[in-house]
């Protein structure tokens, strides 16, 4: 099983066994990661699953679509170049070990 390392804004690391084929958001929820809220349940409507993918592995992730791009402008913590909505990023075996940084605020 691939792993994801979620890192809270205070630097706390949570290494979890991840499921491929479902989103990074769903992996966070399944592992009770507090820094992801996902109030709309993955419909790309709320921007409360914002994360920063600064890891080099992120280059293997397909580019975002326009809805996600628009929604990121609404994230509680200011958007960076590495910003993604984790509900729109599918976990794959290729991303094994990816570090996902979480913002301090989601709403």
């Amino acid at each position: 099983m691939p792993k994801i390392v979620f890192v809270d804004s205070d630097g706390t690391r949570h290494e979890v066994e991840a499921k491929s084929g479902v989103s990074i958001m769903e992996n966070a929820i399944a592992n009770n990661i507090d820094g992801i809220e996902a109030e709309c349940g993955g419909s790309c409507m709320c921007a409360t699953c914002h994360c920063f993918l600064e890891d080099d592995l992120a280059q293997k992730i397909p580019a975002m679509e326009s809805d996600e791009d628009e929604m990121l402008g609404f994230a509680a913590e200011e958007r960076r170049d590495s910003s993604r909505l984790s509900c729109q990023v599918t976990m794959t075996d290729e991303l094994d070990g990816i570090v996902v940084n979480l913002p301090a605020e989601q709403n």
Partner: peptide
């Protein structure tokens, strides 16, 4: 499973 807002362990852990 995908519909769940949180897994069962969430409620116990919180």
């Amino acid at each position: 499973e995908k519909l769940l807002m949180r897994p069962e362990s969430f409620y116990q852990s919180r």
